[in-house]
């Protein structure tokens, strides 16, 4: 206490603010306006932080891995809204495109050598699920991390490279890992650089063929 302008009462107000004992708007405003008072709040905060000495318990060894798995790794948030707006207008176009794809003779692509590709889909609440894709087997493996479809279903979409439109890959299990065999038409859409997205849809999936609910997670497919 070197600042003579601070009375005991001022200092107690600073301590109360640091502890959160009184949600006092006047004190909060004073902290912003009065450096001497702000210093006292900080002083008390620094002291109270010392109350948090370890209790002698350590978190489990794998906790860091769980945190690391939830860090955003992809450039997966930019453009999402724009894509969402456009997707409605392009839905008709994509339906035709999909129809045409489906009508093509189903030529099996030769299995592509190489490691499976993966995507980590995350949203505002962090990592939602991880996807790995084995292109030679056309097999998607989906591992939900934190995905709550509420009363409806989570639907998986792919936005192919160079496209802005989302094509449904179907409803997925939001609670446990699942494996999906893509048909050849779907497999053509899924390549490194494609973006996966999850939307929340009514039970059974989007009734319209394009996303109707919020996009809760997205991420790019990358080679590992």
């Amino acid at each position: 206490m070197t600042d003579l302008s601070m009375t005991d009462d001022d200092d107690l107000t600073a301590a109360e603010l640091a502890l959160g004992l009184a949600a006092d708007p006047a004190a909060m405003a004073r902290r912003a306006a009065d450096p001497a008072f702000a210093d006292r709040v900080t002083w008390w905060e620094d002291r109270f932080a010392g109350l948090t000495a370890p209790l002698g318990n350590e978190p489990s060894g794998e906790l860091w891995q769980r945190i690391a798995a939830r860090l955003p790794v992809n450039d997966n948030t930019g453009g999402l809204l724009r894509w969402k707006v456009i997707s409605g207008g392009l839905a008709a176009v994509s339906a035709i495109a999909l129809f045409m794809l489906a009508q093509r003779p189903q030529i099996e692509l030769p299995p592509q050598p190489g490691a499976p590709a993966i995507a980590s889909l995350s949203g505002e609440k962090g990592s939602a699920l991880a996807i790995s894709y084995d292109s030679s087997a056309r097999r998607l493996t989906i591992a939900p991390v934190l995905l709550d479809p509420g009363k409806g279903d989570a639907e998986l979409w792919v936005i192919p490279v160079g496209s802005k439109d989302a094509i449904s890959l179907g409803v997925i299990d939001a609670h446990k890992p699942s494996s999906h065999q893509l048909n050849p038409a779907q497999a053509r859409l899924v390549a490194t650089g494609a973006t996966f997205a999850i939307s929340l849809e009514p039970t059974g999936g989007s009734p319209t063929g394009h996303t109707t609910g919020p996009i809760v997670a997205s991420g790019k497919l990358v080679e590992i």
Binding site: T52, P54, L55, N57, L63
Partner: peptide, 15 residues
């Protein structure tokens, strides 16, 4: 992590 875990444990009680 030990220190911050101490805070969380203190607040939640359950590991």
């Amino acid at each position: 992590s030990r220190k911050l875990f101490g805070i969380c444990l203190r607040i939640f009680g359950e590991r």
